[in-house]
């Protein structure tokens, strides 16, 4: 049998940990470690004997072997950290804001000026896309928006929002005037010669919109807010 002295200590520690667990967590933890170490010693002692009626239902901290679990533990913690980071990143970029690169010349004076000589250049501006506007689908004329291409769901386009549902718009090429249907909008690029936009695929559903471009982040000399611009005399609300 283990000595009655150690048993008494264990009992004392047990009661103390229970009392402390609500008031001071760190002390509680320290005591737990102490008591569990004692407990383990007791268990080893008592395992040589048949009677085990003195084993308390203690909440022990399990001690892992530290010698050859080092690399495995590191790998495990690394994967856990990266998965957590990915979860947070995906959620933030889905719900609040994300950073996307803009390529191509369709928004020429606003994004990617000075890349005229390299039309196929892969590097482009980095812009901040905010997604708070998606909560109520409230947009205003002249917002620069990011949306999924209606003809290819894997492509994302950046254009300027020209007309909102229920408004009439004059299409520049065909000189016709058409009404934007409910839940749709009319988008056009700033650089009308290089832009594939509503003039070719018609009004797009508002549900395709992924966010509103609020700031240019990169390159640093053009860092700043993206302003609203609107061609005059083409849109009327009745």
């Amino acid at each position: 049998m283990p000595s009655p002295n150690s048993l008494k200590t264990l009992k004392f520690l047990h009661s103390k940990t229970q009392r402390l667990s609500s008031t001071s967590p760190s002390l509680h933890q320290r005591l737990l470690i102490k008591s569990s170490a004692l407990h383990q010693r007791l268990l080893i002692k008592s395992s040589t004997l048949p009677s085990d009626d003195h084993i308390f239902p203690l909440t022990c901290i399990t001690f892992c072997g530290t010698s050859n679990m080092g690399t495995l533990g590191f790998l495990w913690s690394f994967t856990r950290a990266s998965v957590t980071g990915a979860l947070f990143g995906v959620t933030i970029s889905d719900r609040y804001a994300s950073i996307v690169p803009v390529r191509g010349l369709s928004m020429y004076p606003t994004f990617n000026p000075g890349r005229n000589s390299f039309p196929r250049s892969l590097s482009g501006d980095l812009v901040l896309v905010e997604k708070f506007c998606l909560a109520k689908y409230k947009f205003s004329h002249g917002d620069v928006i990011v949306f999924r291409s209606p003809s290819n769901h894997k492509e994302t386009l950046v254009k300027r929002l020209i007309a909102l549902p229920g408004e009439w718009i004059r299409v520049p090429e065909s000189r016709e005037i058409l009404k934007i249907p409910q839940g749709h909008c009319w988008v056009e690029g700033d650089n009308s010669t290089h832009s594939l936009d509503s003039r070719s695929f018609g009004p797009i559903p508002l549900a395709l919109i992924q966010g509103r471009v609020s700031h240019v982040i990169w390159p640093p000399q053009r860092m700043g807010e993206v302003e609203r611009k609107l061609p005059t005399g083409r849109v009327s609300s009745y």
Binding site: K136, P181, H184, L206, A207, I209
Partner: peptide
């Protein structure tokens, strides 16, 4: 499908 008539 997200409704094209009402995005919400």
């Amino acid at each position: 499908v997200r409704s094209p008539e009402n995005p919400r």
